[in-house]
């Protein structure tokens, strides 16, 4: 049985990087259909009602997994206003989110209702400026200078 704690150290925004790691934590996947349907409805409502949503372990102020922490650190550092959902606080959401986007790992980032990616993908996108482009296209405010600093620190 694999330990629930994540190993990753809390990533500072400036350290975002070089190794692309995705978190593979899990929850029981055997739930009743009605419960899953309910969880999916709740997820659907959340990602559509909020421009940027991060499903993570812990909260944006206190992440409880190195991988969730890394993505939260990037978003915090570049000043994006986002909604954090702590999957550890809701078992239905924790299993439901994996089915919702057919993605087995957490964290998961959503922009305007669309699944963007997990830790590896967000890290790569931050470093390649694709994340900036995504936010710009969707009219989501962020601090471009801070985003540039992340790239400078990892150049």
């Amino acid at each position: 049985m694999i330990e629930e704690l994540c190993s990753g150290a809390v990533a500072k925004a400036a350290e975002v990087a070089t190794d692309f790691v995705s978190s593979l934590h899990d929850g029981p996947s055997k739930q009743k259909d009605s419960v899953m349907t309910d969880a999916k409805t709740r997820i659907d409502e959340t990602v559509k009602a909020n421009d940027v949503v991060l499903y993570m372990k812990g909260t944006k102020e206190m992440p409880q997994c190195g991988f969730s922490s890394r993505v939260a650190a990037v978003l915090n550092y570049i000043g994006v206003d986002y909604t954090d959902v702590n999957v550890l606080a809701d078992e239905e959401i924790r299993s439901g989110i994996k089915e919702y986007s057919d993605w087995p790992t957490i964290p998961q980032l959503y922009v305007k209702g669309e699944f963007v990616g997990g830790c590896d993908i967000i890290t790569e996108m931050a470093l390649s400026s694709e994340l900036d482009a995504l936010f710009e296209t969707n009219g989501i405010a962020f601090n471009k200078e801070a985003a540039d600093k992340i790239r400078e620190a990892n150049a």
Binding site: I2, S7, S22, D26, P28, S29, P104, T105, D120
Partner: peptide, 15 residues
């Protein structure tokens, strides 16, 4: 292999 509490892999860095 990485699903659920019985998943064998805890974390896999993917490129």
């Amino acid at each position: 292999k990485m699903d659920g509490p019985d998943g064998e892999l805890h974390a896999l860095a993917l490129t």
